[in-house]
Amino acid sequence: MIAILCPGQGAQAPGMLAPWLELPEVAASLSALSDAAGVDVVRHGTQSDADTIRDTAVAQPLLVATAIATGRALLGDSAPAVAAGHSVGELGAAALAGVLSDADAMRLVAVRGAAMAAAAAASEATSMAAILGGDAGDVAAALESHGLTPANVNGAGQVVAAGTKAAIDALVAEPPARARVIELQVAGAFHTTFMVPAVADLHAAAATVAPANPRGVLLSNADGAPVADGEDALARIVRQVANPVRWDLCMEAMLQLGVTGLIEVAPGGVLTGLAKRAMKGVPAVALKTPDDLAAARDLLENAA
């Protein structure tokens, strides 16, 4: 059983779509996805610089479009046996699983990205930082003492804290014992209460969508649970904007389901990197360029 993974914000890189445009079907898909979102993901994925694609309103549509287009290049019209996405990657996973049409996923991610950017701009200065290593209890105590939220619990000894910029600066200056703290280049404190205004905007947009039930197992960032109902899956994606991502629980669920291999759609690498430490022994392929499709197809064909 192979799980298809869709990466979240931060995985984007300048020029990442250039090699994929050499595949006519991917180029056509990306053009249609750009039209649906009202964001030129082709231009941003080939010409825009790192600062431009760091903008939440650009990064999120770019990532979801890339996940859908490269996922379709691998799977065709088939749905994954198991699908999961990290943060905004949940919209890509929902599209590949058949919960959302590709066009609806792009319309929703355009609203999500713009709303989260607006919420970040409207609040006091906020930020996020990755905490690598350290004792879990010490890390939790440090976050509580600074009034920070564990916005992403990624497993493999990685937690991303979020909150005010002042609190993040204090955490960087005084990290937990045996831990490294790296401030992230993001626009705000995602997956915290600072994003509540964005939830309202996304909820209104989601009300215009008629989701279907997943064609396969779709895992939720809320608790790693398989979600069988399309309405529930969409509601969870909306709520997740202002709630922590529990990727650690998603990986635990994949192990419990008996997943025998992982394929991370483009821009792959982050989630397969976490899995190498938290899901040891499970083979993984990260799609970075079309050259990686052969290995991914081989993994699919030889799935137990």
Rank of each mutant, 00 (worst) to 15 (best):
I237Q: 13
D104G: 00
R54A: 12
A167D: 14
P19E: 07
A125P: 11
V196A: 07
G134F: 00
A266I: 08
L234K: 00
A161L: 07
T52A: 15
A170H: 04
I168K: 02
E174A: 15
L63T: 12
A95C: 02
S101G: 15
A97T: 06
S29L: 14
Q9I: 03
T56N: 09
D40K: 14
E174G: 08
D104N: 00
P244W: 04
A235K: 06
P197G: 02
L300Y: 12
D49P: 09
N243I: 03
A167L: 11
G76D: 02
A114K: 02
G15I: 07
A57Q: 15
L255Y: 05
M1L: 07
D138Q: 14
V241H: 10
G98W: 01
D138Y: 07
A93T: 08
D298K: 15
D298C: 07
R236D: 12
A110Q: 01
R180A: 14
W247N: 08
A36M: 13
H44Q: 02
V238P: 01
R180S: 14
G230V: 04
E124N: 08
A73C: 14
V209C: 01
D201E: 15
A204V: 07
A253R: 10
T164R: 13
G71T: 13
I168D: 06
G157K: 04
E174V: 11
L287G: 02
A69D: 09
L293W: 03
R112P: 04
A204R: 13
A200Y: 05
V42Q: 09
L299V: 10
L33M: 10
M279S: 13
V265M: 03
V26K: 04
M106E: 05
A162C: 11
Q47C: 12
S87L: 06
L91Q: 01
